[in-house]
Design a protein around this nucleic acid. Structure first.
Length: 270
DNA sequence: AAATATACCTGACTGC
DNA sequence: TGCAGTCAGGTATATT
């Protein structure tokens, strides 16, 4: 599943292949993604040259001088570069052809992904209310502490709220709270500033090491499926119910919060 | 306003 | 071996 590190890895992977090349056509085999893909995209994208590929939260922004394609990979999406004419599979919903002979292909079995066209992408409805990037300086302990005052929502749901901070998915939320020693059910408003220092460091740490891992295992991303469980072996809490905590040997507990599974150590996290 | 539930979708897995 | 049922998960949106 594409977490922020995989989206960033995808960005780094595709950009050199499509930068400064011109879109010759777009083929949309299935418009029924999370939202129907508008025909505006078919009309506006072809003919433009790619100026950069950037990322905001888990959105990939494929920029041209006259507008931006906004792509979200959802739960099961991936993008990769193939040669023109490579046969498409059943879940290959969109192809963007370039004058280089290459095709950028979007594959998404569960169709939770989305694709939009915008001339002002950062003001797009989907992006305008997003919180800071977890690896930027404006995401820090004081910021989190201030935003959390008076909030009774659990700390886990708080850090997964994209209006607070983007890019912390279900897996990394459990991991970061484990690293910081904070109980996932604790109210966000009852976490003290020093513990937010630990939490911010943990979030940065887990995301940046996953980006490094992603860069390694997704090396042959193009044409591959890119779904390798590159971070599996590094997980300390997620998916380890009943297994020994690596710190204290207490069996890891599993609970459900907001319809999502949470894993934690009831001895180490308070 | 904040918190919580729901919807979207299908591959992988479980139990009969 | 097949089949029905369950689960997973990002996030906008609806509901409480």
């Amino acid at each position: 599943m594409p977490e922020l590190p995989e989206v960033e890895t995808s960005r780094r992977g595709i950009e050199p292949h499509i930068l400064d090349t011109r879109v010759t056509r777009i083929i949309i085999r299935n418009r029924r993604l999370r939202w129907p893909v508008s025909k505006t995209l078919d009309r506006e994208l072809p003919g433009n040259t790619i100026t950069s590929v950037t990322r905001r939260a888990k959105y990939l922004l494929i920029n041209t001088s006259s507008g931006t394609a906004i792509l979200h990979l959802g739960m099961s999406g991936s993008v990769f570069v193939v040669d023109h004419g490579t046969p498409a599979g059943v879940h290959d919903h969109v192809d963007i052809d370039f004058d280089s002979g290459k095709t950028l292909r979007f594959r998404d079995p569960r169709r939770f992904g989305s694709l939009h066209w915008s001339t002002t992408p950062l003001k797009h409805k989907l992006l305008v209310s997003l919180g800071p990037e977890p690896l930027d300086d404006e995401f820090n302990a004081i910021y989190l502490w201030q935003r959390s005052r008076g909030r009774r929502v659990s700390i886990k749901q708080f850090i997964m709220n994209a209006a607070i901070v983007v890019g912390v998915g279900n897996i990394y939320a459990s991991e970061a709270l484990f690293m910081a020693g904070i109980h996932p059910r604790r109210a966000a408003g009852r976490v003290a500033l020093p513990r937010y220092e630990l939490l911010v460091a943990a979030i940065r740490n887990v995301l940046s090491s996953a980006i490094r891992a992603g860069g390694t295992t997704l090396r042959d991303f193009y044409g591959g499926d890119g779904e390798a469980g590159y971070f599996r072996q590094q997980l300390e809490a997620y998916g380890r119910e009943g297994e020994a905590c690596r710190r204290c040997n207490t069996p890891i507990s599993a609970i459900v919060q907001g319809q999502r599974s949470t894993f934690y150590c009831k001895n180490c996290q308070t």
